[in-house]
């Protein structure tokens, strides 16, 4: 099996998790799926760089994180944070209380990218600190401190009931 077939077939079962990660990074449904599309195209184009002994999920999540950073740069800081009235889109599919979802969406959107990505990788995707550190190419201590600060901001934003 050549590497592009292996990557293509291996990505199919990862699509739901990739969409979840993209949603946590990008926020809105449409932006997140645009991000997933970019990630899939990049992953297929770079399939030859994937080593079969490396976990495909980590590899493609790293592509997703880098693609998201690229998108942020391309769109500009001012634009990437969606307008507050748009945040409701994210709450559309929810199981939680709509008001609570909106609050969470706003709190996440307010995080700097460094913090948002550790929240997405560790708290949403469920990676260990070590795995997130490897993906982000930073020391574990950096992941820990970013996560602690992200948690503090989220809890402060979400306020009393969190």
């Amino acid at each position: 099996m050549n590497s592009s077939d292996a990557v293509r077939e291996g990505l199919i079962p990862l699509l739901p998790r990739l969409r979840r990660l993209a949603r946590a990074l990008a926020g809105q449904v449409a932006d997140a799926d645009d991000l997933v599309q970019i990630v899939l195209e990049r992953a297929l184009a770079r399939a030859a760089q994937w080593r079969p002994d490396a976990a495909l999920d980590k590899w493609v999540f790293a592509i997703a994180r880098n693609a998201w950073r690229d998108e942020l740069r391309a769109r500009g800081r001012a634009q990437h944070l969606f307008a507050p009235e748009e945040a409701g889109e994210m709450a559309a599919d929810g199981t939680a209380q709509p008001a609570q979802r909106l609050e969470l969406a706003l709190a996440l959107a307010a995080l700097p990218p460094d913090h948002r990505e550790v929240v997405a990788l560790v708290l949403v995707e469920g990676m260990s600190y070590g795995e997130a550190a490897e993906l982000l190419e930073v020391p574990v201590g950096t992941v820990t401190s970013r996560l602690a600060r992200a948690r503090a901001s989220l809890q402060a934003q979400l306020g009393k009931d969190a």
Binding site: R19, R20, A24, D33, A96, Q100, R101, V124, L158
Partner: peptide, 23 residues
């Protein structure tokens, strides 16, 4: 738990055709 409750439902959403078609 709040983050999981917000994002885990994405796992059960149907994947848009434009994405699965790429694979």
């Amino acid at each position: 738990a709040q983050l999981r409750a917000a994002f885990d439902p994405v796992l059960d959403e149907p994947v848009p055709q434009r994405l699965s078609a790429l694979l």
